[in-house]
Design a protein around this nucleic acid. Structure first.
Lengths: 186, 186
DNA sequence: AGGGTATCGTAACAGTGTTACAGCGGTAGC
DNA sequence: GCTACCGCTGTAACACTGTTACGATACCCT
């Protein structure tokens, strides 16, 4: 589907504001009606981009190997999280902050989007089972890691990281500090 | 300025998509041209809302008292951060994620917006001076606390917090864990 | 070969931000 | 008191957006 590809490129380069149906149709060489017969409108097209973005996102996360050290696995997952976001920055807000006006993820697509976080959940569960994390609901420390990664990446994408900080090193340092706070003292 | 007030209400209730100049002008009883002679366009009006939002945000943060326990101060600041965001949720994305298409915070307004984080910076500096935090750049642990708070709040606002978690309790727990990870062991 | 369905193009409608133009008001200078 | 000016306002238009009704086309299946 050339429309979807072109829409992804257009959104990744020019941003959400430049994603207009006429522009899109003109680039591909068709008319705006094609979008309606193939997808059903602009929100439906963005929905397709949404699941595509989460597929790539899930691939990045599934690519980090699972070791016998759940803590280090979580760190690596956090680094992969940021790499995925920085790979195409304009796709990130489509997933987690509503950038395109008409589109909001419905219940179904939202659930299968969260499936991309499975490696994170499993690492946390393994950590709790191994006793390196306290006996709290796994979703809580998942939200902790996810929230920190999302917040840091989101702030970085919006240009809120101070210049005196090396983004790579600071991000990893922050991740490790957060995780250290969850470790139950041996 | 009734236009600004009405714009704030409209944005806080109906969201960014409903903030149209014609709608706004009709509600106040004037014409769209008023926005151009008074502000200079829609982005300029949103800019005004941006600084207004940061003023309120700064007030929430300045309202938490400073004690001799920098760690606890940071927790209270984090709680105030979330309270401020939940007070009018639609104003939060205006500050930290670009919701309104035409508007992006320029350098000047972005700098004075960050001034709202002053209490956070001071608490971190006090913590480093007191030896409860390690001797790292203050901006790093600031970014850590800010990133976590922003990420958690952002995810909550987008409906990504699992139902089995009590949002209030989980948020505070996550904040405390993160801060514990920064504490240098006595 | 014929019929049905999916897709596409043209044109229009409603809505948006923006701007040129004209009119009104008040205010400063003489 | 008159006049000229300047800020503010409304009307109307332009260019753009998403959306849809209507025909026409092409393709696939029977």
């Amino acid at each position: 589907m050339r429309l979807l590809d072109r829409a992804g490129v257009l959104l990744s380069t020019k941003g959400a504001g430049a994603l207009s149906l006429r522009r899109l149709a003109a680039d591909v060489g068709t008319s705006t009606t094609a979008v309606y017969s193939l997808f059903g409108g602009k929100p439906a097209l963005v929905r397709e981009l949404f699941v595509e973005a989460f597929h790539r996102f899930g691939s990045h996360l599934r690519a980090v190997p699972r070791t016998d050290d759940p803590g280090e696995d979580l760190i690596q997952l956090g680094l992969a999280y940021r790499r995925s976001a920085l790979a195409d920055p304009h796709l990130y807000p489509v997933m987690f902050t509503n950038t395109v006006p008409g589109f909001e993820p419905d219940e179904q697509v939202g659930q299968e989007a969260l499936a991309a976080l499975t490696p994170l959940i499993e690492a946390v569960r393994a950590g709790i089972a191994a006793g390196v994390f306290p006996d709290v609901p796994a979703t809580m420390v998942v939200m902790s890691c996810w929230g920190l990664a999302h917040g840091m990446v989101s702030l970085e994408l919006n240009g809120y990281v101070p210049e005196e900080l090396d983004p790579d090193a600071a991000y990893e340092r922050v991740l490790r500090a957060n995780l250290a706070g969850w470790r139950v003292p041996a």
